[in-house]
Design a protein around this nucleic acid. Sequence first.
DNA 1: CGGCCAATTGAGTAGCTTCAAACTTCGTGG
DNA 2: CCACGAAGTTTGAAGCTACTCAATTGGCCG
Lengths: 263, 263
Amino acid sequence: MLYSTSAATSNSNHLIAYDIGSPKAEQKKWLRSSIADIAHYLHVPVTTQLQYDNEVFQHIHYRTGQRIFNMGSSFHSIYLINSGFTKSVIRNESGIEQVVNFQMKGDILGVDGIHSSTHNSEAIALTDCDLIVLPLHKLAELGKTYQSFEKAIFNIISTELVHQQNRLCILSARNSEGKVADFLLNLAGRYFQLGYSRSSFTLRMTRNDIGSYLGLTLETVSRTLSVLNDSGLIEVKHRRITIPDAQELRNLTGCKKARCAAE
Amino acid sequence: MLYSTSAATSNSNHLIAYDIGSPKAEQKKWLRSSIADIAHYLHVPVTTQLQYDNEVFQHIHYRTGQRIFNMGSSFHSIYLINSGFTKSVIRNESGIEQVVNFQMKGDILGVDGIHSSTHNSEAIALTDCDLIVLPLHKLAELGKTYQSFEKAIFNIISTELVHQQNRLCILSARNSEGKVADFLLNLAGRYFQLGYSRSSFTLRMTRNDIGSYLGLTLETVSRTLSVLNDSGLIEVKHRRITIPDAQELRNLTGCKKARCAAE
DNA sequence: CGGCCAATTGAGTAGCTTCAAACTTCGTGG
DNA sequence: CCACGAAGTTTGAAGCTACTCAATTGGCCG
């Protein structure tokens, strides 16, 4: 399984979560993480000094479909995903969802709230989730104590920005096949980084979500997946995706316009 | 004029730039700005303590068409626009430009470089520009000394993120008229904030740039402008745009899809 | 004035959307 | 455990938006 209901059962080597409540293993529900744990996730080098900091961070669980925070609600913390999948969406006046991003283990949620202290998007659990709550003021304090932590905070926000910028390029410069291929390869890469198979995985979101994310309709996503399936580039069985040859698929992700190839 | 070749001739009440070199007014070319000046721009409350901080920030001039920084070049500073217009673009493998954003007075340039210490985009001067160089390490130090400055740095990056997220919504959920209308209203609003007319202004970028920014071809941008012109919603004379009634134009910026209206 | 780049306008078309119907999957409750 | 309904997915056919290619006009600078 890609995610577990309790972080304690996860085979992650990034996070050594430990419960501070009841000693019974059965009740390992609400965990806390040390700063060293967080540092691992944020790719901050763990100094000995940092290892003995006894500040802790609280976990929160969410069930599939639950809303983690609302658009417009006041912002205090960002969330680090310890297990599970989420999506963040912006809802327009008519209530239509626009998917902004999908998050998985190790990703950060709620960064856009830092601006204006109000969440600019809404986060929804696509599976049961275990999130680590990182209050911004706590992080900022840490940044003052540990030099490398400060850089990490900047990085969190900036990484999100770079991701969205690159998405813009894909949205406006690629056709449906390019978009879908890029999306799948991206997911495959992230699974791989987490130690899972890069050639076979399960989609946790609907075709509608994918379409919203890629600027396509759900029908076009479905059709494109079928086309890729028929041409042998991928294998689609419902939400199960298999990519036999990533390189071949990558050839599709070029620029759609003839003008591009010319130059 | 919307911009001036020297900040000293600008009628800005935000920045009191002063030259530290030759006393001759003719040579007011390379200016420096105090922290209080920067604080004004970043909407940081100016404390007396801050007012007497004698740290200074260097200015740089660029001429129309000059490149301010390259994609992939190493990152050290962000740039605050004191006067002039710029665009930031991402160049793909084929060398095709994808416009990421347009910047004007008071906007920040180069934020995406914070991630990975390498510029993720390339900035080009659309007019002659006067930029204030803000080395990130200097800003970070200021953040430690002045509490409110720290928040400002987070805000700079986060604001950029929120902007890009909202753009994604527009790109994938609106038709060409909606995109163009939104673009013009956005520009009008920014001009207004700077004390210029919100109903009449000059575009500093080509139709190609606008198209790239909005995910359209230059022909579609031109056609859409013509349609809006013919319907009396705007007046287009080359790069001069007049908006007689902003509210009417705003009605176009709704969601393109019939499904949206239904719900 | 000529050359160059930007912008406009036209005609034809590819690609995505829309609407519609059938099918699959999954969760819930009898 | 099976039946049912709701939600998600697939596939088809028709239509329309925005793209492509092409030709012309307009503005700017040496």
